[in-house]
Design a protein around this nucleic acid. Structure first.
Length: 210
DNA sequence: AAGCAGTTCAACCGCTTTGCC
DNA sequence: GGGCAAAGCGGTTGAACTGCT
């Protein structure tokens, strides 16, 4: 990020004229924040912002530290294995970016969210489209008695994949498109790149006794 | 070369949750 | 238990970058 996107904004202008920096962080600000946190630790972000001499709100400092300055951060070059893991975890967890990031050492929720929105969501949509194209003429639906599985509580239905599980992949109710979307996310025949715990996790998830 | 459209990603915003008094 | 502040989270924004015409 070569250009300076920073701007100054007056917070609560009608109350007290406090000018805080917004936008891109400068190298100087990064250094101040990192130095302060190395000696005092990452807590009380409001205090961090003031004591480190940064014209920033605490939230901004926290975000900068977590997403950029924190040690052991990996940036860019998301590997095939990581991508696979993100897809699996997203299937399992939906848009719970912090939980997904927690399973990917060195990756941040923001990075994963961005990666999902710019790469993976399109990939998944393409898969869905391709899969659907394999069934251009769905047969006339015949009501078949099906063993009724207990429906999940309504308030547990969250995110794209929950909708997918309901056969309502785009959240567009009233669609008469019916197909087994869960097939699209069946990774059971694919390698797991050593993420054994994922298999266990997914097995648990698939186990009807749970 | 210029202009436009699409993509990427850092950062912000607003809401929720958690912890403390 | 209520109120407040801090922390955490996911969605959204907007500037820079890239590719296409």
């Amino acid at each position: 990020m070569a250009a300076d996107k920073s701007k100054k904004v007056e917070s609560r202008p009608s109350v007290k004229r406090v000018v805080v920096n917004k936008g891109a962080w400068t190298a100087e600000e990064d250094k101040r924040l990192a130095d302060y946190i190395h000696s005092h630790g990452p807590k009380k972000w409001k205090t961090v912002a003031v004591r480190a001499g940064l014209n920033r709100c605490g939230k901004s400092c926290r975000l900068r530290w977590l997403n950029y300055l924190r040690p052991n951060i990996k940036r860019g070059n998301i590997s095939r294995e990581e991508e696979d893991l993100i897809l699996r975890l997203h299937k399992l967890l939906g848009n719970r970016w912090s939980l997904i990031a927690g399973r990917l050492p060195g990756r941040t929720d923001n990075e994963i969210k961005n990666y999902w929105n710019s790469h993976l969501s399109k990939k998944v949509n393409r898969q869905i489209t391709t899969k659907y194209m394999e069934f251009p003429a769905p047969p006339v639906p015949v009501p078949v008695p099906v063993p009724v599985a207990p429906a999940p509580p309504q308030n547990e239905i969250r995110g794209h994949d929950d909708l997918a599980a309901k056969g309502d992949i785009n959240g567009a109710s009233g669609s008469d498109i019916t197909f087994d979307v869960t097939d699209l996310f069946d990774f059971s025949s694919e390698p797991t790149f050593g993420f054994d715990w994922v298999n266990k996790f997914l097995q648990l998830d698939d186990d009807p006794s749970n």
